[in-house]
């Protein structure tokens, strides 16, 4: 522990980046799980990775290109097709596998090859720079402000899209806005946190919240708390045992989820 505290100065940007990603993704995970769009978030994360791969090849800004790809992806997923022969799941699945393959093919010819694929999957948290942190703070603040101001609209389109539409809420617009905030959160953390960690942050914290709480506000609080605690614990464990950071955080999140299940069981019994 002493050793870790001595090196804290060196890790400060990495820790800040993890905490910020845990905070925003855990918050958004509540909408993702409630709206049952887990696979949309998985596919969008992969599309974002493909965007970064293209940026590698073309020598462009990875965050900007990833953001563009992600927005394009969420815009397509937010369209409700009336074609009945192909389900939405199939479209999402196709987008996921095609963007995964595209990302691998694109970086396989790069000089760094396998290391870049590793970076896409697991991120490179030590690569976090002060500029990235400030950019993240700015974008995350915007996401939270939008969600605070339009909480009514986001919850209505999440709970009952058709009711929202018939009651006069511009449901398609607010659904697109919700997807765009999810896309923005994915893009800003992709280079540092990686595909695996972002996908996990977008699913497991909400599962914890929903298992314990009966009110939206409490679900958000539990999800964000679990996300941040897991990020910090996982980071420390990865340092202590000299293991990759993302899988350590995922394992911590899963462990907390496993501990939540018996709590839920006793809570229900009481």
């Amino acid at each position: 522990m002493n050793d870790f505290l001595i090196n804290l100065e060196f890790f400060k940007y990495s820790i800040a980046c993890l905490v910020l990603m845990a905070l925003v993704c855990s918050f958004l995970s509540v909408y993702i799980v409630l709206k049952r769009i887990v696979f949309v978030s998985v596919a969008v994360t992969q599309i974002s990775a493909a965007g970064i791969a293209i940026a590698f090849i073309a020598g462009l800004n990875p965050t900007l290109i990833s953001l563009l790809f992600t927005f394009l992806g969420v815009a397509i997923f937010s369209i409700r097709f009336t074609e009945r022969r192909l389900s939405n799941e199939s479209r999402i699945g196709i987008a996921f596998v095609v963007s995964s393959a595209a990302a691998i093919l694109l970086v396989s010819k790069s000089a760094r090859g396998i290391h870049e694929i590793d970076d896409l999957l697991y991120g490179n948290i030590l690569a976090a720079t002060p500029f990235q942190i400030y950019l993240m703070i700015g974008i995350i603040a915007c996401i939270f402000i939008v969600h605070f101001l339009f909480y009514k609209e986001f919850t209505a389109v999440t709970l009952d899209f058709e009711m929202a539409r018939t009651s006069g809420i511009k449901a398609r617009f607010w659904e697109l806005m919700l997807y765009l905030t999810i896309g923005a959160a994915i893009s800003i953390g992709m280079r540092t946190s990686g595909n695996l960690l972002i996908t996990t942050f977008l699913i497991i914290p909400a599962a914890n919240g929903l298992l314990i709480a009966n009110r939206m506000k409490n679900v958000f609080i539990i999800a964000m708390t679990v996300g941040i605690i897991s990020a910090l614990t996982g980071f420390y464990l990865s340092y202590y045992f000299d293991l990759p950071t993302s899988p350590c955080i995922v394992a911590t999140l899963f462990l907390i989820l496993c501990l939540t299940l018996p709590f839920r069981f006793f809570y229900r019994k009481s």
Partner: peptide, 21 residues
Amino acid sequence: IFPIKVLDMVLMGRYAKMGIL
């Protein structure tokens, strides 16, 4: 799976009337 109390569910029917913000 939506964690919402009855009153909040009913209030949702007035969201469009309240207007944004």
